[in-house]
Design a protein around this nucleic acid. Sequence first.
DNA 1: ATAACATATGAACAATAATTCATATGTTTG
DNA 2: CAAACATATGAATTATTGTTCATATGTTAT
Lengths: 119, 119
Amino acid sequence: MAENDVERCGFLFVHEAVVEQVLSEMPADEKLYDLAELFKVFGDSTRIKILYALFEAELCVCDIAQLLGLTQSAVSHQLRVLKAGRLVKPRKDGKTVFYSLADDHVRTLIAQGMEHIEE
Amino acid sequence: MAENDVERCGFLFVHEAVVEQVLSEMPADEKLYDLAELFKVFGDSTRIKILYALFEAELCVCDIAQLLGLTQSAVSHQLRVLKAGRLVKPRKDGKTVFYSLADDHVRTLIAQGMEHIEE
DNA sequence: ATAACATATGAACAATAATTCATATGTTTG
DNA sequence: CAAACATATGAATTATTGTTCATATGTTAT
């Protein structure tokens, strides 16, 4: 099987060894799905704006709405998505709820994304 | 305006200074839109799988299709999206086109995302 | 030139998701 | 307790997006 595993594409172009390698390094389907879900959360400009606003300070829902020119409902819905993705966390104080970034991954991921955009 | 700028939420909860800060650090709308678009590209499990496959080796379209159990058309469509986002790059060799990762941001972004998922 | 093959593309369809509107929940104040 | 307020939620609507199917484009080999 010297030249035989470099077949034309009827089967595989690449060497068997590479196929093995690719398949063995590939994470479980569920993890890939979760990863896609995470990026999906970042994949909306409204949510990106909300995250950027929270870069500077914790803010309550109506602050965010006013700052970004969005309705209270839209912001609340999106905060729910961000919270589900563990990207923001709430702190309740009386009737108002303050949101802040959940951890540093948010900052590093967005920074990395920006780098790619700007090159 | 000492206590005055810590108004109840009829206007803004936060200090004027913070509002200024948030708005001044906020990138231009177009950039935020582009950033969301970038993350949107990562935000699909099929595309994530393709990128992971390309972690190990450059692959042609039909290799990817067979490796991942997808149709040629689906892979081609998604490669177009990945290419538009400058996440993969093509190398044409006769009738076959080999794709590889465009740069290291792909790896670092996915690695960062995985970290967040797994904690 | 014709046949076989790898990839790309367009249209149609199905599935997801974002926003709006109305309203519910829960908290504070008079 | 009632009114005012901040937030959350559900349903409906609109917009986006992924996949499939059919077919087009471009390349290699006979």
